[in-house]
Lab assay of single mutants.
Amino acid sequence: DVEEQIRRLEEVLKKNQPVTWNGTTYTDPNEIKKVIEELRKSM
């Protein structure tokens, strides 16, 4: 579920933690925001 994935990513973003997405680890909050944007567009 895309909305659930977005929620999880936003939680990680709030905690300022790195997130691994599709085999890539993002540590930059701006990169994580881009991933969230892409997910929103795909909905």
Rank of each mutant, 00 (worst) to 15 (best):
N16Y: 04
K34E: 07
D28Q: 06
S42C: 11
G23N: 04
V2G: 04
Y26F: 09
T24G: 03
R8S: 09
N16L: 05
V19W: 15
G23S: 03
T20P: 02
P18I: 10
T25Q: 05
W21I: 15
R40Q: 06
T27V: 07
K14G: 09
K14W: 12
Y26T: 02
R7M: 09
K33H: 06
K15I: 08
K34M: 11
R8E: 11
K41H: 12
I36W: 03
T20M: 13
V2W: 11
K34G: 06
E37N: 08
I6Q: 01
W21D: 01
R40I: 10
V35C: 04
V19E: 03
Q5P: 02
R8N: 10
K33I: 12
L13E: 02
D1R: 08
V19T: 04
Y26C: 01
M43A: 07
R8F: 15
K41T: 10
D1M: 12
D28A: 04
D28S: 07
V19C: 06
V19Y: 12
P29H: 07
E11C: 12
V2Y: 08
N16Q: 09
Y26I: 11
I36V: 06
V35I: 15
I6V: 05
T24L: 11
R7D: 03
L39K: 01
W21A: 03
E11N: 07
P18W: 05
E4A: 11
N30P: 03
I6W: 03
E38F: 14
T24E: 11
L39Y: 03
K15C: 09
D28Y: 03
K14N: 11
N16T: 04
L13M: 12
E10P: 00
L9H: 00
Q5E: 09
K33C: 07
D28R: 03
K33V: 09
N30M: 13
E3K: 10
E10K: 05
R7F: 06
M43E: 04
D28G: 04
S42Q: 14
P18G: 10
T27E: 06
K34I: 07
T24R: 10
E4F: 12
W21H: 11
W21L: 12
V12E: 14
T25G: 02
L39I: 06
K15W: 13
N22D: 09
I36G: 00
I6F: 03
R40V: 05
K41M: 13
Q5Y: 10
I32L: 08
T27N: 09
N16R: 09
L39G: 00
E4Q: 10
S42V: 12
V2H: 06
M43W: 06
K14C: 10
